[in-house]
Amino acid sequence: MVKSVADVMSHDPIVVTPETPIQEAIQIIAERRISGLPVVNDQGKLVGMLSETDLMWRETGATPPAYITILDSVIYLENPKHYEKQLHKVLGQTVQEVMSNGQMFTTTPQTPLREAARLMHEKKVHRLPVLGEGDRLVGILSRGDIIRAMASSEAEA
């Protein structure tokens, strides 16, 4: 029998809002021993993800861009906007200031598990938000969920 995402996903995932204080989100991640949190708006729609990688900026800090000076002029060797983005993450006080909200990969409960696993592998993501009707977050699929499904399939065989 082909398993779907709904068969193995974590239902009712722990979520935060963009306004959640970053320290509160850090506590949730640490206490629940999870690697990331979906960020939803008031309607329950996904607006971003907060991952351990996003939070690492707070500890590592931002690296100023390399530059040279010629005749009292500063010439940046890389885009200073990248530094501004890093600095914003380091100093952020709310989830919205720190979360990733670029291209997000999602799945649906009906998607075959193999297809979702392939997407996670190809895109190098650790978790996929599962969206139901009206693009509302209904679950989350993690690599751990897939591994546990593989283990249970082997045990049944």
Results as ranks from 00 to 15, higher is better:
1 M>R: 00
10 S>V: 04
87 L>C: 10
87 L>Q: 05
72 D>C: 14
101 N>A: 11
33 R>T: 08
122 E>P: 06
150 M>Y: 07
109 P>K: 03
16 V>I: 14
128 L>W: 06
132 G>M: 03
78 E>V: 05
99 M>A: 06
46 L>F: 14
122 E>L: 04
77 L>G: 15
51 S>Q: 15
30 A>P: 07
45 K>F: 11
92 G>I: 11
44 G>I: 08
19 E>G: 14
95 V>N: 07
137 L>K: 04
10 S>C: 01
114 R>Q: 09
88 H>I: 06
103 Q>H: 03
133 E>K: 10
80 P>V: 02
140 I>E: 00
83 Y>V: 03
13 P>D: 01
57 W>H: 11
157 A>D: 11
129 P>F: 06
148 R>W: 06
79 N>T: 04
25 A>K: 15
29 I>P: 06
96 Q>P: 04
50 L>P: 04
1 M>E: 08
148 R>M: 01
5 V>Q: 05
83 Y>Q: 08
21 P>K: 03
1 M>T: 02
136 R>F: 06
99 M>V: 07
65 P>N: 11
131 L>H: 10
47 V>T: 09
64 P>S: 14
53 T>R: 05
98 V>G: 05
98 V>R: 00
74 V>F: 08
119 L>Q: 07
151 A>S: 03
147 I>Y: 05
76 Y>T: 10
26 I>A: 08
110 Q>S: 15
81 K>P: 05
127 R>S: 04
54 D>Y: 15
46 L>P: 10
24 E>M: 14
150 M>T: 13
17 T>Y: 13
150 M>S: 12
32 R>Q: 12
30 A>L: 12
47 V>E: 05
137 L>C: 05
77 L>K: 12
29 I>T: 04
48 G>W: 02
134 G>E: 11
91 L>S: 15
22 I>N: 00
82 H>R: 10
84 E>W: 04
118 R>I: 01
94 T>D: 13
130 V>R: 01
45 K>C: 15
152 S>P: 00
50 L>Q: 15
71 L>K: 09
66 A>F: 10
